[in-house]
Design a binder for these strands. Structure first.
Lengths: 196, 196
DNA sequence: ATTCGCGAGTAGACACTGTCTACGCCGTGC
DNA sequence: GCACGGCGTAGACAGTGTCTACTCGCGAAT
């Protein structure tokens, strides 16, 4: 059983991932994905009742890869005996790095109009990711009275940096493509300065 | 000259604003906007060479309203003799309030795939908004060495809160629809605690 | 005053999309 | 040996954005 003969369901998702990575989210037409997978335009219907459910499956793959990237970055940082603050910085860099390296996929993942109906499932896949952040936050801020709020606020900051960079306004405002000073400012704000 | 007889260009934009406010961004088909304005589907082409340029004009209206809302909130706070920190809080609330009250418009405003080509102009319209934030930031943090980065980081935090709330993940994580604790955490992080 | 030109809106064609339906095909179980 | 059910094909259908005649009305120039 070769690559071409796997389950059509997995092949369609793989074709979609390939497409969204190479051409962006508006190249993810149902017929285009079917063409990419080498089947007729009616074939996806046997595996996904509607176009949006296929897109949701593609986005799920993206969330999986993002979670893997974050887990890998955290494991790498933890293996060097880094403290919680440094590990959080590694996580943040991994989040922004994924968004920058996969702009089309990142856009799809948070396009709730395309994922409506399966959005609840997708949102749930971010929960372990969130918990990783929350655990490190409570380690950095032991006497924080609302660690969930602090974690959500930091996550929102990272997410906003990713989105505004993708939109192009950060380069307009800062004059450079490099957002590491912005990331540093955000981390310093939420976690306190790096050196105390 | 009645409401129905104004320039078709303005009427199309008004119809689009109405549509996106009532039905969301995926109701903004070119033919649908034309129907809403009471003209044939070819009429918009005389005023907007392509569908995206019409959408960009609609989004421009949204940015204008957002800027107005922020300016109004800042003026109101300033008129009561509030300090910079309180005015920044009012601005932040106005930003999140606009995003919550006009979810469709807010989504359209940052959908760069729909606004490609006119995106640069739209981004520029956010510059005065950004300067308002930056001025207040330098007032709160006089000896900040990079106020632009601090301002961009705060803006990204607000934007991320707006987007993640629209996406629904904040409610999943915090268990409530109220994001004021998150906003407070973000403001405390970037500006320091309210009471020093 | 008549005619010319042109801006503006209409209507239809075209290629494309997502969804639905009828059909054929092939492997499995009785 | 045969019916059946799952899977992919192919066509129809309504809808979309864009493009191209076509018409109508009005202002200007002769």
């Amino acid at each position: 059983m070769t690559e071409q003969e796997r389950d059509l369901r997995a092949r369609l998702v793989a074709a979609g991932v390939e497409l969204v990575t190479r051409e962006g989210v508006n190249a993810l037409g149902l017929r285009e994905i079917a063409r990419q997978a080498g089947v007729s335009h009616g074939a996806p219907r046997r595996h996904f009742p509607t176009h949006r459910e296929l897109l949701a499956a593609i986005a799920r793959q993206g969330f999986g890869r993002l979670t893997d990237a974050l887990a890998g970055a955290d494991a790498l940082a933890a293996s060097t005996g880094a403290d919680a603050r440094t590990r959080l910085e590694a996580l943040a860099r991994a989040y922004l790095g994924y968004a920058a390296a996969n702009p089309g996929m990142f856009e799809l993942m948070f396009r709730h109009d395309l994922l409506e109906g399966s959005g609840a499932d997708l949102r749930r896949t971010t929960l372990p990711l969130f918990r990783t952040f929350a655990d490190l936050i409570t380690e950095v801020h032991p006497q924080c009275d609302d660690p969930t709020a602090a974690t959500a606020a930091l996550w929102a900051n990272l997410h906003g940096l990713a989105q505004l960079r993708a939109w192009g306004s950060l380069r307009l405002v800062t004059g450079t493509e490099d957002i590491t000073p912005l990331l540093r400012a955000a981390l310093d704000a939420h976690l306190g300065p790096a050196v105390r």
